[in-house]
Write a protein that binds this DNA or RNA. Structure first.
Lengths: 187, 187
DNA sequence: GTAATTATTTATCTTATGATAAAGGATTGG
DNA sequence: CCAATCCTTTATCATAAGATAAATAATTAC
């Protein structure tokens, strides 16, 4: 739990009471590799913080498994397109390395926003920052060849290639596994 | 200005004082087609609301003009990767049809957050919603052929194809203008 | 209204990536 | 520790999209 509060401090300081209020609506979850932390079709009512492990958000498009994003230690995961709309998510969260996560109940969290503007501010900043990352990602996708995208990933997030099966990386890069393998062979 | 407050109401109600406070830090701007509302290299300190007209955010990648997104009436524009980080933006906002926009000073707006939690909440919701749109857009890009992306645009936002030069649409779709023309010829 | 500029289309050729199949490696469960 | 499964690579062929050039169409400025 302390790791979570330390993560929060990068965005915005919280009072002790606010930390306590968040602790009260949170719980620790341990989950093994290859399991879904949240299934497809479920409305997102939990914001997770990864203390240990690796996860991905994925979905199926025309029957093909597509990875939307990877998540590592010290990051927040949520299927925002469900969390912020209240609609069921077509995406799932899968654990790729045995994980310990903090689960924060989002409905209760949103209620805390009324009593603790500092908590609302904190999460505003967290999601603003996630929004910026997402906008930057689009820039990385538009108008780059598969090979350029692979090299960028190799350079910016070698962790992904070390800790995640390549078949998941391929769809993240928007290519087939076979193409990824071919690109990797080019050296 | 009333159009702006009406837009706000879709997200979260504001008290009269809060509306007044926002009005005080805002101004109306009229700007002609093909002009940059904000140039490349400028740190984003303004959030715009389009009352009338069309705009796009664009940047240069290896000397090529790339459109990140289009904006129409009744929407908020900001280069969030600069607004939320304080870093200069490599992107510009260009007007594509003579426009009237409301310019909200973001530094003053962020100060209002302290006195008016309702304003912080409103903009939190506005940007959460923009974040969701951006996440959904990635889904539309990953693993779709250029033709599928064109058809999706034709179906979901025919406005873009009616009101925007195709050369800007091509880079938005992540293809060359020549490819877009070829795809359009396929019927 | 006309010339000049800019936008769009069409054509040709090349190349990157998809689809499919199959072989080789690695991991996992009993 | 072995068998079964799953992951990754390699090979072949087909196709979508890039690059370039040039023709046509539309818009803009004078």
């Amino acid at each position: 739990m302390e790791a979570l509060f330390q993560y929060f401090r990068k965005f915005s300081p919280l009072s002790k009471e606010a930390e306590k209020a968040i602790a009260e609506i949170s719980s620790m979850v341990t989950i093994k590799k290859n399991n879904d932390l949240q299934p497809i079709g479920h409305t997102c009512k939990t914001i997770y913080f990864i203390k240990k492990g690796v996860a991905r958000i994925y979905y199926f498009k025309d029957g093909i498994d597509i990875t939307e994003r990877f998540f590592f230690e010290n990051s927040i995961i949520a299927r925002v397109e469900s969390l912020f709309t209240g609609k069921p998510s077509r995406k799932a969260i899968q654990i790729l390395e045995d994980a310990e996560v903090v689960a924060i109940n989002s409905n209760q969290l949103f209620k805390l926003y009324d009593d603790y503007p500092e908590i609302e501010r904190l999460f505003r900043k967290i999601f603003e920052s996630a929004y910026v990352e997402t906008v930057n990602r689009i820039e990385g996708i538009q108008f780059h060849s598969a090979e350029e995208r692979y090299n960028a990933l190799l350079h910016e997030a070698p962790d992904v290639l070390m800790r995640v099966p390549l078949k998941y990386v391929a769809s993240y890069l928007g290519i087939t596994q076979v193409s990824l393998s071919r690109i990797r062979g080019h050296r």
